[in-house]
Design a protein around this nucleic acid. Structure first.
Length: 738
DNA sequence: ATTAGGCGATTTTTT
DNA sequence: ATCGCCTAAT
């Protein structure tokens, strides 16, 4: 037996070595799924299969990167040409090469849901559909749903059964036309267009079937119809399709994932070998038992018998609190207790919740106690207005047909181009069948423009012409910085002078350094950068090397594990979440989500709920979640925490809790150094570390909560007394340590 | 053309 | 409670 195979159990080994033909691996939580996938790929490469014949589709970029690293450790540089990543990023890559066959330019833009929503609103406005009677977001989600199910605009129109669907179908049709005219694709198109390409062009299909002779799909239970079709198309010839998943962990039905894909795999591939990974290496017996008791309440699953050799461990703690603030306080005091008892690091702890809005009270409580934390998700960096504005300039530079991005920046910074000027320009561009940018270049011919408007348009078109020409002769960094200077966004923000504007200024700086870094490391062109930016998520950037508690939604917890897990807000209406009458399928999906959360825990699990929770600013009485009752009381322990006293009594000093400003020196044992090499913030010799008190020339005094990144992009999260929490780029922020 | 202030919706979850 | 959008005022 090769050394690779000796560290696998029998089932894992079977999953790794069955390389020919269809294979379905049903992988319970913590059963070594990632290991199996990476070993399987390493094994294939070891057998002499060239890495470029392997296509590995994962759910997040993070998972892909981790597996790639693992494979490289096993087989070395041979893995370099492996295609491994998310469906969206890999098929975007394929489209860059092949999209001309569909009439797209290779420089197409990728629209995120914000972009696509604003396009939809514009179409509705132009079609006389009142935004007030028809919620654009609902229309967008209906369209996206149709696209996920591979329903074309024509089919959608025929099936439309009420006024809403009729309007939606009209918008859908025009939306696809506009995207094409803008040379743009939304997330759904990144899957739909490849299907059209492969099913419509025999030669292309053959080319890629030749290329991808071995296909692996991770998290198969969360694939949608389009992803299913892609796998089917590409795998049709060699049938070396290996899917890995767990029906019990399917949590993305709301965005079109179809659990039927995994349930029907054996129907699609009757000769499929089915392997079950049932030994859990992650959790204690009680945690696994709780998970098992819960999921049994769902009907119609693939049967599984999960077991573990791990210790029984401690009971599941169910914590009842009076309200959400106290819930947060209780979580914090329990975190402190846990870390003290196990001499553990804060990074061992994750706090999970159903909705992003719940993070707020937790953040406040953590801040109050000076405990460092990182938050995954929420408002993402690349979604911020100032970032999207600058990116829109870059998108227009790359893709002059991108009217949506052009409109975003046409009058930002303000240059006298208001509604009237824009509609005149739009009329001209549609009469001439050219893009808005091309129309701007001929501003003189547009009827009825003011002098100022004409000047503004000429300036804009000149800007893009100039940098379009300069582009090839400049480095990425030079290009973007010089263009940003010319646009004048930074001085504009600086003038504003408010702390918010200052924060935005820093964000723009951060974007610029990110681009420079991308260029300097030779990771690709501006097009590549823009594409990457559209397709990364917050969880991809997360890492556990900081000594900080992780806050995240149950959804983003998928695929991760933590020694200590808190699931908060265990209340009817929140978990399970519902706003309208309860449907069995929805409750089951909520239960799976709950199951995912529970099975992230290795050593300790806390489930907390509040009797009163502030929702929409008003207190509402809550009842404990039905899910709590699904765990056998013999493995649970109930704790009541009614006040804030806990933390105080745990502190060594029984004295009054000092105000934040006075607490210069946090109790050192709560800040153990992270294991291994120097913490990232110290890499450059910066003495800054979590817990330090600092002064900023604009924001005044504050405390460092965490440090992230390295080199020029080292960032610090600082809690200021005056303005609250800020994300600062050390390079610009000139923090003085007090 | 730009800004300020008021109103309304918004809270699932995300590639 | 907060954000974004719309209207009215400058």
């Amino acid at each position: 037996m090769t050394p690779i195979l000796s560290d696998l159990n029998d089932q894992q080994r079977e999953a790794v070595t069955t390389v020919q033909g269809p294979v379905m691996v049903i992988a319970g939580p913590g059963s070594g799924k990632t290991r199996v996938l990476s070993y399987r790929i390493a094994h294939l490469i070891g057998m002499g299969v060239p890495a470029w014949n392997i296509l590995a589709l994962t759910f997040t970029n993070k998972a892909a990167n981790e597996m790639k690293d693992r494979i490289t450790r096993l087989v070395g540089a041979k893995s370099a040409s492996l295609w491994m990543g998310t469906f969206h990023s890999l098929f975007a890559r394929l489209l860059r090469v092949e999209c001309e066959a569909l009439g797209f330019g290779r420089n197409f833009s990728i629209y995120d849901s914000q972009d696509s929503l604003s396009l939809i609103k514009r179409i509705m406005n132009g079609s006389g559909i009142p935004l007030l009677s028809f919620n654009p977001a609902a229309i967008r989600s209906r369209i996206s749903g149709a696209k996920n199910q591979l329903v074309s605009p024509g089919e959608f129109a025929r099936a439309a059964s009420d006024i809403f669907e009729e309007k939606a179908s009209l918008v859908y049709e025009r939306y696809q036309v506009s995207l094409k005219r803008n040379n743009a694709m939304d997330f759904d198109d990144l899957l739909l267009h490849p299907i059209a390409l492969l099913s419509g062009h025999r030669k292309l299909l053959a080319k890629y079937q030749d290329r991808f002779r071995f296909i692996l799909v991770d998290e198969y239970q969360d694939t949608n119809r389009a992803q299913y079709e892609l796998v089917k198309l590409l795998g049709a010839r060699d049938r070396n399709v290996c899917v890995v998943g767990d029906d019990a962990q399917s949590i993305y039905a709301f965005r079109g994932a179809d659990i039927q894909n995994i349930l029907d795999f054996e129907r699609d591939y009757p000769d499929a070998r089915v392997v079950r990974l049932e030994q859990n290496y992650r959790s204690t017996k009680s945690i696994l038992a709780a998970a098992d008791q819960i999921i049994k309440n769902n009907l119609g699953q693939i049967p599984k018998d999960l077991w573990t050799e791990n210790a029984p461990g401690e009971p599941i703690r169910i914590v009842e609190c009076e309200d959400d603030r106290r819930e947060a306080a209780a979580v914090v005091s329990l975190i402190v207790e846990e870390c003290r008892r196990s001499k553990g690091n804060f990074s061992e702890v994750a706090v999970m919740y159903r909705t992003n809005a719940q993070s707020r009270s937790l953040e406040e409580a953590l801040r109050r106690e000076g405990i460092p934390y990182v938050i995954v998700g929420g408002v993402e960096f690349y979604q911020r207005k100032e970032i999207k504005d600058l990116l829109a300039y870059l998108r227009v530079l790359i893709n002059g047909a991108d009217d949506e991005s052009f409109l975003r920046i046409i009058n930002y910074p303000p240059r006298g181009l208001g509604e009237a000027a824009i509609s005149r320009l739009a009329a001209f561009s549609s009469a001439e069948q050219i893009s808005l940018l091309a129309a701007a270049a001929r501003a003189g011919e547009v009827a009825g423009l003011s002098k100022a408007a004409q000047g503004g348009l000429e300036w804009l078109s000149g800007l893009f012409r100039k940098y379009g020409e300069l582009r090839s002769g400049m480095s990425l960094s030079e290009l973007v910085r010089s263009m940003t200077d010319e646009i004048g966004i930074l001085p504009l923000l600086k003038e504003e002078g408010t702390p918010e504007a200052m924060g935005r200024w820093e964000n723009v700086q951060e974007l610029l350094s990110a681009i420079s870094e991308f260029g300097a490391e030779g990771r690709g062109s501006l097009e590549d950068f823009l594409q990457q930016v559209s397709l990364v998520s917050d969880i991809d950037e997360w890492d556990d090397t900081h000594n900080a508690v992780t806050l995240l939604t149950l959804h983003s917890a998928k695929g991760l594990e933590f020694p200590v897990v808190f699931i908060t807000g265990m209340e009817e209406g929140l978990l399970p979440f519902y706003s309208s009458p309860v449907d069995r399928n929805e409750i089951e999906e909520e239960r799976r989500l709950y199951y995912v959360g529970i099975t992230r825990a290795m050593r300790a699990l806390y489930l907390t709920f509040a009797r009163v929770r502030y929702r929409f600013g008003d207190p509402s009485a809550q009842t404990a979640s039905r899910f709590l009752g699904e765990i056998d009381p013999s493995i649970t322990e109930r704790i009541y925490r009614s006040g804030y006293r806990m933390t105080t009594s745990l502190r060594m000093s029984g004295t009054r809790r000092p105000a934040l400003q006075e607490r210069i020196d946090p109790e050192p044992e709560f800040y153990p150094d992270p294991p291994g090499p120097d913490p990232p913030g110290d890499a450059e010799g910066s003495p800054l570390r979590a817990g330090a008190l600092v002064e900023h020339e604009m924001f005044g005094r504050g405390r460092v909560i965490g440090i992230a990144g390295k080199g020029d992009s080292t960032k610090a999260v600082v809690e200021f007394h005056s303005v609250g929490r800020k994300n600062l780029l050390l390079r610009y922020a000139r923090l003085r340590i007090i």
